[in-house]
Design a protein around this nucleic acid. Sequence first.
DNA 1: GACCAGGCACATC
DNA 2: GATGTGCATGGT
Length: 222
Amino acid sequence: MRVHAAQVYEILLDKLGPQGWWPGDTPLEVMIGAVLVQNTAWANVERALDNLRNADALDPHRLLALSPAELEPLIRPAGYFRVKSRRLQNLMRWLVDRAEGDAERLRESNAQALREELLAINGVGPETADSILLYALEKPVLVVDAYTLRIWARHGWIDYDVDYHQLQEHLASELPQEVGVFNELHALLVAVGKKWCKPKPHCAGCPLEQLLPESGIAEPCW
DNA sequence: GACCAGGCACATC
DNA sequence: GATGTGCATGGT
């Protein structure tokens, strides 16, 4: 018997409760946050966002108008600040060209088309693009990440060498195609990953460890 | 001090 | 096409 992603979702939602990701933030802030959080802890991203807000730069046109020497110090706390200042401006340039800087307006567009446009931007890869589609534009697109792969692979539910798209399709096919479910599942998996599923395993107490192995649908996590 | 974080692009073989 | 490396801050 093979585990179903919907079961994992139910268990985690029950055990951990809703994670409340990106509620109340504007689509623009989500987009900027999605770039800043690349391989970085969210706490660091918040400082950078605060700096941008205080500098009145949480605006596509004003952010684009900044020179690297002006933008880099603002986002410095989020790490990789030289790379990310370029990536951020690439994304903002697209937003201005595409929708006159109005992120809300992107919601009218088709998710597949938007995804391809986003992936064409230097600095936007699959996870960043999908995070924007799901959390900023409320498209029913599942975000998978390093934690998702680790959790699924360590239980023997999937091979460790699947690529992003394979993992995404595999999980999405086992879930109701709802924005709310995709939103919450990814956030829950990040919560599990942060606490229990680090690169060096110390999985004791993980909600999945106690529930799934005894039902015979998972190998013990390692 | 080592390890880790809600990746991605680019170089090299 | 697979594998390796640079990017950088801040928390544990």
